[in-house]
Simulated assay, not measured.
Amino acid sequence: MSKEQATLVAAIIAAVASLLVLVANLLGTRRAEMRAAHRTALVNQLESLGEGIHETAASATIIRRLHLQNAETKTWRDDDKSGSDKLKLVRPKIKYTRYAVDEPLRTLSRMPEWIATYKSVKQTNADELLEEMQKLAGAIDEAIRWSYKRGLPPGPLRRWWLKRRTKRVRTLWGARFDEAEPRSD
């Protein structure tokens, strides 16, 4: 190979390398912009999501505890509205960027109301439902935290896990109607 041919080959290699670096930079920049957009869409809702998840889970737990003590739950049922309402307001705002969290948030927002219906039912699975609800709340919280940290929607494994947790809560809720004794009013 002559000196001119070697120079030509080196120039072609340099040009190809430059093109590959350019494409990699463009793709990297695009991914970074998409991640930033995902974070921006979520950052405005983080406070409401965190408060809503915590308040809803706490209200359901306290309502159940008060039922076991035969105490009045009206105050807590009113308080649970704020947590549930926060989740119900935030859910449509993050529905498309965090689509895997939509149905779990819907289910979680109903938990205080669902737990409140167990008051006059003698044989219940309320404690098991409450435990699964706490696990669902933790899974949602973890998915949102991961999503914000990575700037990406939840991955397939996390979506499967959320779907499984949600299905478990809904199955237990549905079993209430199959196993519940008639009310004695």
Rank of each mutant, 00 (worst) to 15 (best):
K149D: 03
P104E: 01
L136V: 09
D127W: 09
I115W: 00
L129I: 13
K135N: 08
T124N: 07
I115D: 00
I144K: 00
E131G: 05
E113S: 13
Y118D: 02
V121T: 14
Q134S: 10
E142L: 14
Y148Q: 07
A100V: 07
K149Y: 09
P112V: 10
S120F: 11
W146N: 11
Y118W: 04
S120N: 13
K135L: 13
S147P: 00
N125I: 13
A100F: 05
D102N: 15
M133S: 15
S120A: 13
A116S: 10
E113P: 00
P112Q: 04
E131W: 04
A143G: 04
T107D: 02
E113L: 13
E113M: 12
W146M: 11
G138M: 06
I140K: 01
G138F: 03
S120L: 12
M133A: 15
G138E: 05
E103Y: 11
K135D: 05
T117F: 04
E132G: 02
A139Y: 02
K135I: 10
K135C: 05
Q123T: 15
W146I: 15
L129G: 02
D141L: 08
T124I: 10
L105V: 10
E103W: 11
V101F: 02
T117G: 09
Y99K: 08
Q134K: 12
K149R: 15
I115L: 02
A143E: 00
L136I: 07
E132I: 05
N125V: 12
A116L: 01
I140R: 00
D127Q: 14
V121F: 09
L130Y: 03
G138P: 01
L136P: 01
S109L: 06
L129C: 04
M133C: 15
P112L: 10
R145S: 11
L129E: 01
R145M: 06
V101D: 00
W114F: 11
E128K: 12
M111Y: 06
G138L: 09
A116V: 03
Y118M: 09
T117R: 08
R110D: 09
T107N: 03
L136R: 02
T107I: 12
S147C: 03
E131I: 05
A126C: 13
L105P: 02
K119D: 01
L129R: 02
E131Y: 09
P112N: 05
A143I: 06
V121N: 03
T117P: 01
L129N: 02
Q134R: 11
M111A: 07
K149E: 07
A126F: 08
I144M: 02
K122P: 01
K122R: 15
T124K: 07
E132M: 07
K135H: 09
E131C: 04
P112T: 12
Q134D: 06
Y99S: 14
R145K: 11
A126H: 05
S120D: 10
T107H: 04
V101C: 07
I140N: 00
T124G: 07
L108C: 08
A139K: 12
S109G: 09
D127H: 13
D141T: 15
M111F: 12
A100M: 08
P112H: 08
P112D: 02
E132H: 09
P112M: 08
G138S: 11
R110V: 08
N125C: 05
